[in-house]
Design a protein around this nucleic acid. Structure first.
Ligand code: SF4
Ligand code: SF4
Lengths: 151, 151
DNA sequence: TTTAAATAGGACTAAATTAGTCTTACTTTG
DNA sequence: CAAAGTAAGACTAATTTAGTCCTATTTAAA
């Protein structure tokens, strides 16, 4: 269970966009964040379709963060589709099926899904960026305050 | 973010093994749970290496559930390796790096990781199987009590 | 009014991961 | 010793993810 590059890039792009003032072009953003340009473009387009960023075409155009209330969950959903950790044996709604073990497993995974959603919905990009100063301060402190085990 | 078949199968196998009395052979278990036999064997071997199941060779041998205190988290870790949702740009511990957006993103993902671990560690296979009767009863009730949106 | 800087979108390819299979060897009980 | 089992590793197939490329369209500024 690891996060996709798409989601990772998207998250970073969103965070970065949210603290910019004017529109930022995909190219510029790609450089700032070290993300392959064409790939980033695709990501931004997905984010636009779900209203998380806005775009303006033409010279001096680019992408703007549109919705500071958007949560990390919203972004992940936009990029990787609905997060589904469980399903039924048949694949389609042929329930109830005859596999009790399957059913209990699904029950667990569903609870997990709910927890994940809860956690990620509570974190808005706006809030993340408010933490910026605090975080930067921490970074300037000694090693101890850094994120632990960042590989 | 979806769960792998390996993990899914493993979970189901564990739940099923835990309620059996004697050792169950891979073949038998594969039939019971509708899992490809050779693949299941691999899964069980991983689970053995982490002490979740035990095996006895030879005729009348098979796999036994070894540790009722094992949690869903333990099983997932055994099968898919450590669940890592975040990392540093360089990949190795060349920190601190120069990408504040990256850092905040990691911070979020790390919190998520913690939530997931917390949720899944709290669920032991023993506990899951205690719920069996309750759950089966629910299944026998009308549709309303089934897991919602099991596709 | 041309041109350069941008987004829009779709088709395509490459890389990586996941899922599954096959083969061979060893172990145990009847 | 034969049948039923696990052990381990190499291999292949299928799917997903990551990334590229190409062409069209829009827009502001020169
Ligand atoms: S019995 Fe459980 S696992 Fe099977 S279809 Fe119904 S809800 Fe899903
Ligand atoms: S600054 Fe943040 S993201 Fe960068 S290496 Fe350090 S902890 Fe990781």
């Amino acid at each position: 269970m690891k996060i996709s590059k798409r989601a990772y890039y998207g998250l970073r792009a969103a965070v970065s966009l949210a603290e910019a003032d004017g529109p930022v072009s995909a190219r510029e953003l790609a450089e700032r964040e070290h993300i392959p340009e064409d790939f980033l473009e695709k990501i931004l387009q997905k984010l636009r379709k779900t209203g998380i960023v806005e775009s303006t075409k033409g010279v001096e155009g680019g992408y703007t963060f549109a919705n500071k209330a958007a949560s990390v969950w919203d972004i992940l959903k936009s990029l990787d589709g609905p997060v589904r950790t469980f399903s039924s044996p048949g694949g389609k709604g042929t329930l109830p099926c005859d596999f009790p073990s399957h059913c209990r497993t699904n029950d667990v995974l569903r609870r997990l899904e709910i927890e994940i959603e809860k956690t990620l919905s509570g974190m808005t990009i706006g809030h993340l960026n408010e933490q910026l100063t605090t975080h930067n301060k921490q970074r300037e402190d000694k090693d101890e305050n850094r994120i632990k085990s960042c590989e």
